[in-house]
């Protein structure tokens, strides 16, 4: 009798310890971000206060008004156009990378051909080239082609940045779909093209969406290349814009936090929507040769 009671108690203790550790862990993961978000809604003077103000006395949307150029106070940084640039560049490069990636991923998933492994590895290795290292020759080439400080210039770079990984993911999604389904459809009267659109594509759809989100966020978040290939409001993106704030004489912490929130929110939402598929794609594409 006593034995079971004791072991039940120790089991309970273990459970509590487990939960506690997890809780602390999640706190460490979430707190930094949450602190930035919280600060975005506080006036700068409260952030700068010495001694620190722990309990916010004032919650305000002024910081957002400030960076987007409405409201009483304004900053001299055109966050609005950065936002548009980021959106246009990320969306366009994602759509193009997805089209190229679906074609490539399908090819890897469904055909046997010579140099298959080599080509796959080659794509990955190209992806591994550090952004800053790539930025120099691309910068020199783009200046000759007149692509520096244009959205197009950055879009082209981001497409190539996203293609390898998109292929990796989409290859994984297609390989989860048995080849026999497409064959059955072809026997049922479809062309290969029809079989793809009526059977394989609908089944891979959510996976492709996940790959798209990943590509979008890669473009949305990229800094090293954007910082060198953009100059003005024509093409500057949000991550580059964030650095504008530090270049100023005094750091506008509240403004930066507000901008950070603007960058984070889409990432959080999109991640939340596709996380399940993304994990499946990552593991399946990797584990099953």
């Amino acid at each position: 009798m006593t034995v079971t009671v004791e072991s039940r108690a120790s089991k309970q203790a273990k459970k509590v310890a487990l939960w506690l550790t997890t809780f602390v862990l999640m706190l460490v993961m979430c707190l930094p971000g949450l602190w930035v978000v919280l600060s975005a809604f506080r006036p700068n003077r409260e952030i700068l206060a010495k001694p620190p103000v722990w309990i916010p006395e004032e919650i305000t949307l002024d910081n957002f008004g400030k960076i987007f150029g409405f409201g009483a106070e304004q900053v001299g940084i055109p966050v609005g156009s950065y936002f548009t640039n980021s959106l246009v560049i990320a969306l366009t490069s994602t759509v193009i990378a997805l089209i190229i990636g679906v074609a490539g991923g399908y090819s890897f998933a469904r055909y046997r051909f010579r140099f298959k492994g080599g080509i796959f590895l080659g794509l990955m290795l190209f992806r591994a080239v550090p952004g800053i290292a790539l930025s120099m020759p691309v910068f020199m080439m783009w200046s000759r082609l007149g692509l520096v400080d244009t959205k197009m210039g950055l879009i082209i770079v981001y497409v190539s940045l996203n293609v390898p990984f998109t292929i990796w993911l989409i290859d994984g999604f297609f390989r989860q779909i048995p080849q026999a389904l497409s064959e059955a459809a072809q026997v049922d009267g479809c062309t290969r093209w029809q079989a793809f659109w009526k059977i394989e594509f609908p089944l891979a759809k959510s996976g492709i969406a996940a790959a798209g989100v990943f590509a979008f966020l890669t473009s949305w978040n990229e800094f090293a290349l954007a910082s060198q290939l953009t100059r003005s409001t024509d093409s500057k993106t949000l991550p580059v814009g964030l650095l504008d704030f530090t270049a100023q004489f005094t750091i506008d912490w509240a403004g930066m936090c507000a901008l950070a929130v603007v960058i984070i929110i889409p990432a959080l939402i999109l991640t939340f929507i596709v996380q399940k598929h993304l994990i499946a794609g990552l593991t399946f594409g990797g584990v099953k040769g």
Binding site: L217, N221, E222, L243, L268, T271, F272, I279
Partner: peptide
Amino acid sequence: RTIMMFPMMFSPIL
């Protein structure tokens, strides 16, 4: 698991 994914999606600059 979802919470864990968030840092991965953060911009490094952020």
